[in-house]
């Protein structure tokens, strides 16, 4: 038989228990605490693109293809440069011929099968170049959908593909909202930008960053507050691509226009 006093006491306890957030039961990792209290900063690679500085020379694409052994004449690339030309009538003209491997050596916009479109200089309101590469998302949908565990995220945030384990199903290529993945024409497995993992792990810059004469591309450690890239991301106005997908992309852009997708 339950008394009124016991019932009220139990009800109060139960309500108090319900009010506790799940986080209160989480066991705190000591490593996490140390990281927050100074000491050595963690490591998380992030990329910064300054679209004002980019001139569309395409030396980054050339260097990437050679460095990473992506077949030079195949119409696939781990990184590419897009040209955006907006005319006075409000129309957008965009192209990226051969991923801009040879730069933009004509004023004509490449329309693919529909030929070329020449735009007069006096009709242009704004025109600029946007380098693109894998966003190395904090929540990579490509890694999430892989049915065999061939694509994954490393501790320092880079998404890689295990060529010996990939079955070539193509789920990741469909899952990436940025279209940065493709089939490697030689290995027939999913292929993507690795942030030049073999270079950054040796203290070198990625091939595209090294090749860029204008400093339009930068790479750094976003967990290190003294890193020049982190300083810019923290103190200046930067944007990311397609933030609405919730993938938390880690390639930041200075001077991102609404026309850029």
């Amino acid at each position: 038989m339950i008394t009124r006093r016991q019932f009220l006491a139990n009800t109060a306890k139960g309500l108090a228990g319900l009010a506790l957030p799940a986080a209160a039961f989480e066991i705190i990792d000591p490593k996490k605490l140390f990281a927050d209290k100074g000491g050595k900063p963690g490591l998380r690679w992030a990329f910064l693109v300054d679209t004002y500085k980019c001139v569309g020379c395409g030396l980054c694409v050339k260097a990437c293809k050679i460095e990473n052994e992506v077949p030079y004449d195949a119409k696939v690339s781990r990184t590419w440069v897009e040209r955006y030309v907006i005319t006075k009538d409000g129309k957008l003209h965009a192209d990226s011929p051969m991923a801009a491997r040879d730069g933009f050596t004509t004023s004509k916009i490449d329309l693919g099968d529909r030929g070329f479109e020449d735009i007069k200089a006096e009709d242009i309101t704004k025109a600029f170049f946007v380098p693109k590469l894998c966003n190395q998302c904090e929540k990579p949908p490509c890694a999430q959908v892989c049915p065999v565990g061939a694509t994954y995220q490393t501790e320092d945030g880079v998404v890689l593909v295990d060529r010996t384990w990939c079955i070539g199903c193509g789920y990741c290529i469909m899952a990436c909202p940025y279209g940065v993945r493709f089939f490697h024409p030689v290995y027939h497995v999913a292929e993507k930008c690795t942030f030049c993992y073999h270079r950054i792990k040796k203290g070198l810059k990625t091939a595209c960053v090294g090749a860029c004469p204008f400093g339009a591309r930068m790479i750094g450690n976003i967990k290190d507050p003294d890193d020049p890239v982190t300083k810019i991301i923290r103190t200046q106005r930067v944007g990311v691509l397609k933030s609405e997908y919730g993938t938390e992309p880690q390639v930041y852009y200075i001077g991102l226009d609404e026309e850029v997708r």
């Binding site: 050679i66 929540k139 490393t154 060529r163 270079r199």
Partner: peptide, 20 residues
């Protein structure tokens, strides 16, 4: 969700040849 993989694959990528 994101880290289910063969650990050795990371070393495969680290061992890739530097050209530039």
């Amino acid at each position: 969700m994101y880290g289910f993989h063969r650990k050795g694959s990371e070393n495969d990528w680290k061992a890739f040849k530097v050209k530039y």
